[in-house]
């Protein structure tokens, strides 16, 4: 089970800040999110920054990035600023 942490509005949509989910890749975790929290949470999670064990999935294999049993996977909605 990977530990999944939600940030921003995603925590509101899922109703929790952190939970354990089953899935060996980011894509599989996203499927779990869709099943457990619905399409809106899934959409926002998919569009978020996804950080697997402190490395950006965007810089790794995207949605195919592996998530291990002890992985911490963070979903952070994209923000602006400066």
């Amino acid at each position: 089970m990977a530990q999944v942490r939600y940030h921003g509005h995603l925590a509101d949509l899922t109703g929790c800040r952190q939970e354990a989910l089953e899935g060996t890749t980011v894509a599989k975790l996203l499927d779990q999110i869709k099943r457990q929290h619905g399409a809106e949470a899934y959409r926002l999670a998919k569009r978020s920054h996804i950080i697997v064990d402190r490395r950006s999935a965007g810089a790794e294999k995207g949605f195919r990035t592996p998530a291990g049993l002890d992985s911490l996977v963070e979903f952070i909605p994209v923000c602006g600023g400066g």
Partner: peptide, 15 residues
């Protein structure tokens, strides 16, 4: 930006 302002960057910057 309206929702979090620039403060919304803290989590991503940390990650």
């Amino acid at each position: 930006l309206p929702r979090y302002g620039s403060a919304g960057l803290v989590s991503k910057a940390n990650a």
